Lab assay of single mutants.
Amino acid sequence: NQASVVANQLIPIQTALTLVMMRSEVVTPVGIPAEDIPRLVSMQVNRAVPLGTTLMPDMVKGYA
């Protein structure tokens, strides 16, 4: 099973992502693949992302 990127904390809207905000976890449905974590650093979320939420491509500006 492929690991996805999951929020390690509440990430407020417009926040630039850092490594400490994300973790990898095998979840359903599958979100952004964990191997993309380095690419996500400094990208902004376009909505508030609660703790434990799987990051989906449409939540990160410039990802999809």
Rank of each mutant, 00 (worst) to 15 (best):
D58L: 08
I32Y: 00
V30T: 11
I11P: 00
M56P: 02
V27Q: 00
A48Q: 13
V30H: 12
Q14W: 15
N8L: 05
D36N: 13
I13T: 12
P38C: 14
A7V: 06
V26K: 06
G52F: 04
E35L: 13
E25K: 09
L10V: 12
D36S: 10
T54W: 04
I13W: 12
V41S: 03
T53M: 12
G62N: 14
I11H: 01
A7R: 02
L51G: 12
A3L: 11
V27H: 03
Y63P: 03
T28E: 15
E25W: 06
Q14S: 14
T54I: 13
V27A: 06
D58A: 11
V41R: 05
N46P: 02
L51V: 11
V41D: 01
I13A: 15
G52T: 01
P38L: 13
T28N: 12
R39G: 07
A16V: 13
P57Q: 07
S24V: 09
I37H: 00
D36Q: 12
T53W: 14
L40R: 00
G52I: 04
T53L: 12
P57F: 07
V45M: 08
K61W: 10
N8Y: 04
Y63N: 02
L40V: 04
Q2C: 08
L55V: 11
V26H: 12
P38E: 11
G52H: 07
S4L: 02
A16T: 13
P38A: 13
M43H: 09
P38M: 10
P33I: 08
L40M: 06
V26R: 06
N46Y: 13
D36C: 14
A7W: 04
Q2N: 11
P12Q: 11
L17H: 00
V26L: 10
P50N: 10
Y63Q: 03
V20A: 14
Q9W: 08
V41L: 14
L17R: 00
M56W: 06
T53R: 10
P33F: 08
M22L: 13
G52E: 02
S24K: 14
P50Q: 12
M56I: 07
V45E: 00
M21P: 01
P57D: 06
D36T: 08
I37L: 12
S42G: 14
P33C: 09
P50V: 07
L19Y: 14
A3F: 09
I13S: 13
D36K: 10
T28S: 15
V20T: 15
I32W: 03
Q2G: 14
P12S: 07
V5Y: 03
I13Q: 15
V49H: 01
A48W: 09
I11K: 00
T54G: 00
P57K: 12
V6F: 03
M56E: 06
R23K: 10
P29Y: 04
R47C: 10
Q44A: 09
V20R: 13
E35F: 09
A16G: 07
G31V: 00
T28D: 15
L19R: 11
T18R: 09
R47F: 08
V6K: 03
I11D: 01
L55Y: 03
A7N: 00
P57V: 05
K61P: 10
Y63F: 11
M21I: 03
S4H: 01
Y63I: 05
G31F: 03
A34Y: 07
V49A: 04
L40K: 00
R23M: 05
P50C: 07
D36W: 08
Q44R: 14
N46A: 10
Q44N: 09
D58S: 11
M59G: 03
I11W: 02
L19V: 08
P57T: 05
A34D: 07
V30C: 11
V60S: 01
Q9V: 09
G62L: 07
S42H: 10
G62Y: 10
A48K: 10
T15H: 07
Q14Y: 15
V45S: 05
I37K: 05
P38S: 13
P38K: 13
M59N: 06
T15L: 05
G62C: 13
E25T: 07
P12V: 05
P29G: 04
D58N: 12
A64T: 13
N8D: 10
V30L: 13
T53V: 13
T28M: 09
V20M: 15
G31H: 02
Q9C: 10
I32P: 00
S4E: 00
G31R: 00
V26C: 09
M22D: 01
A34V: 08
A34L: 03
P29K: 05
R39A: 07
R23F: 04
P33W: 11
R47K: 14
R23P: 01
G52C: 04
P29R: 04
M56T: 13
V60T: 00
V5D: 01
V45F: 01
S4Y: 03
G62P: 05
T18W: 04
R39T: 08
V30Q: 15
T54K: 04
M59V: 07
L55C: 02
R23V: 06
A34C: 11
V30R: 07
P12G: 06
T18V: 06
A64H: 15
M21S: 03
P50I: 06
L17A: 00
L51H: 10
A64D: 08
M43N: 04
A34S: 14
L17V: 03
I11T: 00
V60D: 01
A48Y: 13
M56H: 07
I11N: 01
N46C: 09
V6A: 03
V30S: 14
G31C: 04
Q2T: 14
N1P: 15
T54N: 03
D58T: 09
L40W: 03
V30D: 07
I13V: 14
Q44G: 03
A7F: 03
E35H: 12
Q14F: 13
V5S: 03
G62T: 05
A7H: 00
L17G: 03
M21F: 04
T15W: 05
I11C: 03
D36L: 10
L17F: 02
G31M: 02
R23L: 05
A16D: 06
P50A: 11
V41H: 02
M43P: 00
P50M: 12
V30P: 11
T15R: 07
D36A: 11
D36P: 00
R23D: 05
L40F: 02
M21R: 00
V27R: 10
Q44L: 13
R39C: 15
Q2H: 14
S42M: 15
A64Q: 13
T54R: 02
V26M: 12
R39V: 09
M59C: 06
L17I: 09
V41P: 00
A64P: 11
R23I: 06
T15D: 03
Q2V: 13
A3S: 10
Q44T: 15
N1Q: 15
V27N: 02
S42E: 09
Q44I: 11
L17Y: 03
A34G: 08
D36I: 07
I13N: 15
V5P: 00
E25A: 13
A48R: 12
Q2A: 12
